[in-house]
Structure formats: C-alpha cells, structure tokens
Nucleic acid binder design. Sequence first.
DNA 1: CCGTATCCTAAATGATACTG
DNA 2: CAGTATCATTTAGGATACGG
Lengths: 120, 120
Amino acid sequence: MMRKESSVNLENEKTLEAECPFIFALSLMGKRWKPAILWKMTEGICRFGEMKRAIPQISEKMLAQHLRELETDGLITRTVYPEMPPRVEYALTELGLSLQPILKQLNDWGENTKKIKNIA
Amino acid sequence: MMRKESSVNLENEKTLEAECPFIFALSLMGKRWKPAILWKMTEGICRFGEMKRAIPQISEKMLAQHLRELETDGLITRTVYPEMPPRVEYALTELGLSLQPILKQLNDWGENTKKIKNIA
DNA sequence: CCGTATCCTAAATGATACTG
DNA sequence: CAGTATCATTTAGGATACGG
C-alpha cells in the first residue's frame, strides 16, 4: 500500500499550481473541509471525536482523509498515545498556526455578512 | 426551468451553516474554484474568456456555474452588453471586494510557504 | 476511542457539440 | 465571445462493519 496523501501535485512544473502562490495556498488548505478543520484547531489541541462533533456535516472517512493530507503537507501534527482506549491528538504546526489570522478574518467576514444579509 | 443557483442552504436553521460564521463564509466563497475566481477578479473587471485563461484548470462549465452562484450570493455582478459579438463583464460587488484583504493575505501565505518548502 | 475497509450512491468535473 | 446541453467519467461522500 503506497502512501501518497498530499493533495499537492507539482509534477508538471508549469501548471498554475506551481506558478501561482494563490493556487498553491489553495492546494494546501483549500479542499472542502480543510478550512473548517484548521479553524477548529486554532482553538488548541484536538482529538478526532472532538472534531467530528464540531463539524457534524463531515463524515469520519473524509475527516480522516483530510487529516492525513494536512499532516503530510505539514500543517498539523498527529500524536498517538499508546493507551487503552487509544488517544490521538492533533495540533497545528507552526505553518498551520500561521494561517490563524487569515482564518480569523474569514470568520469575521462571515459574521458581518450574516448581519448584512439579515441571517441569524 | 427553475433558478436556484445559490450554494447557501439555510432551511434547517440549526445546522452549523446557519449558526457558525465560518461555515457560513465557506458556503459563500469556499467552493473549489471560487477563491481563485474572486482573487482574479480583485484585479478589476473581468470577462469570461479572460478568467478561463487565468485559471486554465477550470472547465467552462464549472466556471459558468461558479459565476452564477457568486452572482446569486451577491459577491459579483454580471453585466451583459447587447453587442455582436457579445460582451459580458464580471465585477466584484462591495461585498465581494471586502474579501480582497483576506485573499491577498492567503496569496502572501502561499508565497511564503513556497519559499519555506523550497518550491519555485 | 480512533480509526480502516468495503461497498455503494450522489455530486463534481471533463469532453464534445452546438447556439445567439 | 460567451455561453448551454448532453453524455461519460471521475471523485466525493455516506453507511456499515470491523479491528487495535
């Protein structure tokens, strides 16, 4: 079984992904649930079940898949404690943490936009 | 033919989408190519073919679909000039423009991360 | 508790052809 | 130019069962 979980593909160097910083950023954190996972994790160290509850729309399968990719791409760390029952903790790396201000602003933008649109 | 292009679904008020500003923000601009489209549009008024060339990975179909949703959700405007050959111009609304600083920071983050990862 | 494996369905996307 | 329509395909996602 091979291990190729990163969502980044830079094999054809001339693609926009390789050239454009914006597309590159999206390739690291732009997939469906990744921003939400990262946003949740800015609160601090998280466990699997905790994130599942925090983002109820995501399936376990997708959560696991996204966590692997984020780990491979160096945005989060995964620490397994060999206990019974097992405990696994996810935390942002320095790189992941550097996204926090951007995620915060996006959250603020959402809040303002809800007001403008008179939702909630 | 009905017209229901918005990607926002707030019918069940208790969903995270309705409650959480972050998920709400994602529902407006978090889909696959939307950030890239919006980022391109921060340069100014855009035409369809121009965006297609700027984001070569996106298909015409998806570009059109995403543009419809962004229009319905009030992030962009679409102006048709009844000429021959036809001309259609897309521009950010005030709301769409308010995303510019966030998109800019994401672009900067991508640039820095590329350096850190020694890509390009 | 924290997953993986499998099977299956729904949605996203791509290719192609065509229109005002 | 700026799309739409249709079909084929790929990928995402859900349900369930099982394992360390």
